[in-house]
Design a protein around this nucleic acid. Structure first.
Lengths: 341, 341
DNA sequence: TTGTAGGCGTTATCAC
DNA sequence: GTGATAACGCCTACAA
């Protein structure tokens, strides 16, 4: 801001104490007597002193700030994840700086650079497409935590949910409720190997249950990349129906896509769950509100955030600790959209 | 981070050029010849130089960073608003630091302090409860923009939507479709005079149409403050029904509350829109997905964010410009939840 | 076109 | 228990 800020020197001038003394007093340094501390604190309060982080950080080489890189802010999932991060950061005395790549690869790298320019102590990265290897040159592998899963082990600490298991369960559930022609509505945005696990879970469940896997049942439409996900789901399923695709089950990459799919099915007068059973992934709060309520793979997003931050801080205090892969369990939450027919 | 960062001096040592020259070269200063610039840039790239913001900021007294204080991250509304802010910030060369107060008054003030410690150039504040006057002592009134509306004019630039008009239209619409006993499901979290305008719009519409306003139709339950909004709406309407309250219309403070209300009505086998007509406010994307789809007061959140940032930057470049109140128009989006009976 | 000097506000070190 | 001094990395003036 353009306005003048009070500095330690101003307080020093006013109280007649040395700058060092003022600095120490404000930081609760044991050197300083209670009386002096009180004088300084009162003067600071009265003058409206606000510490300059930049100066402090420059000197201490420590920011007490963690950077967070998210791929996309529109998924409500992130709000809960962030709440977990924030809660843990708050209790541990860290601040968070959050950057969004808004689905653009270039901005993701830019976000990391910016955070490094701020000299954050560590980075939580929820990547979009590339493997983390790409960012190795920024040296974040020992000061960062990857949200998700990396093909290459031994690079960075990871905290992730069991994507494979989740989609396996979800698909198996649809099969068990009598569906055989099951589509997989994939995402069009995330390109990491991690997210590919969801599809693999679906595929394995199909095959394990004696159903032939067909390439054409894997819906993925790159043309819609820039659209919002609810609409993507809507458009993809609408197109599938109009092109005459036959199906009685639908596994969706996430709940947002499922919402769109539900809307398309409604429009085409296809009954859920009678004609088509649907499951999603993420179990957003809204999933109990849509009609019919959506079955979904559930896990604690809040807990995920907390764990991620804790893992990162532990890494920061002990650089030599062996790398860790922390896995968060998932469960299937069955609602109306997939009940037996 | 604990790792070593390359400094200008390192580049200077390597290239044999003076630190100043290196600094200028990296900032595209016209002083420097193309040849020298190239040498420096290559060395910087090769050595992995990452500029230290703290040092730069300390010297320049400018951060090119805008702080954003939000009251609550769980409302999807904020994601879109933030997208607008970010988009505009990006094009104007500013970075955003976002802090959430998570519904706690104390953390809101703390967030402002933290942002000032970072010496952000300006602040976008979306306040929770108190009037902005409270934060006057931080001197943000000429370096900030208030999202919302302040009773006291002439303090700070404001950007807001027409809350009164929106709820007036929504209520009038319910009346015109034949409802007379209309409840107002108020929020339990936001306490600004600004948000009070929504209730006033409802009240005025009631009275203007010859319906007696009854205090007991204003639902507001402070006990649920800490719960999530969808659940709050659910609990409030469930309680209203169980306590024998009669109504055929329901105006909700926002869409989240409306979702919960819809769920409660479903459970009690009350038909929407036949028995009760409902309207919400915010027109979230999910509102077309709930069943029945929700009528809601709509406005562009993205545009709101863009406008807010633009207003702030204009203020920063011209401190003497008269204070402004920028109003964003609203419209009623009618869907199934409120059609004629 | 390039280089030198000084200082931004804070903190660590060491002397008193 | 208090204070003087130097330094963090960068940038602005000004000198060469």
């Amino acid at each position: 801001m353009s306005r003048k800020y009070i500095t330690l020197k101003d307080i020093s001038d006013k109280t007649g104490l040395a700058i060092t003394t003022v600095s120490k007093a404000l930081r609760n340094h044991p050197d300083i007597s209670a009386k002096t501390k009180k004088i300084v604190e009162e003067a600071a309060e009265e003058m409206g002193y606000i510490k300059n982080f930049s100066a402090s950080q420059l000197k201490r080489n420590k920011s007490n700030t963690i950077g967070v890189v998210l791929s996309d802010s529109s998924n409500p999932f992130f709000a809960e994840f962030m709440a977990g991060l924030e809660s843990e950061a708050f209790t541990q005395g860290y601040k968070l700086i959050r950057m969004n790549s808004e689905g653009e690869q270039e901005r993701e790298e830019q976000a990391i650079k910016t955070l490094l320019q701020y000299r954050v102590d560590g980075i939580v990265i929820f990547p979009l497409q590339e493997e983390i290897r790409k960012y190795r040159k920024y040296g974040i592998t020992r000061n960062g935590v990857l949200i998700g899963w990396s093909k290459e082990e031994g690079i960075i600490d990871c905290v992730y949910t069991e994507e494979f298991k989740g989609m396996y369960m979800a698909t198996k559930h649809l099969i068990e409720t009598g569906r055989r022609k099951i589509l997989f509505l994939d995402n069009f945005l995330y390109k990491t190997g991690y997210y590919g696990r969801r599809f693999e879970g679906y595929k394995k469940a199909i095959i394990d249950n004696g159903i032939e896997y067909r390439e054409e049942n894997h819906l993925i439409n790159a043309n819609l990349e820039k659209q919002h996900r609810i609409f993507e789901g809507y458009a993809a399923i609408k197109e599938a129906i109009e092109s005459g695709k036959q199906f009685d089950g639908l596994v969706c990459f996430n709940d947002l896509l499922a919402y769109g799919a539900i809307k398309a099915l409604h429009e085409k007068k296809i009954q859920i769950p009678e004609d088509v059973g649907i499951v999603g992934y993420d179990d957003l709060e809204f999933s109990m509100m849509v009609y019919p309520s959506l079955s979904s793979v559930n896990y604690s997003k809040f807990n995920w955030g907390e764990l991620a931050l804790r893992t990162l801080l532990e890494r920061l205090t002990d650089q030599d600790m062996p790398l860790r892969q922390i896995v968060i369990d998932v469960e299937l939450n069955i609602r109306e959209s997939s009940t037996k027919r």
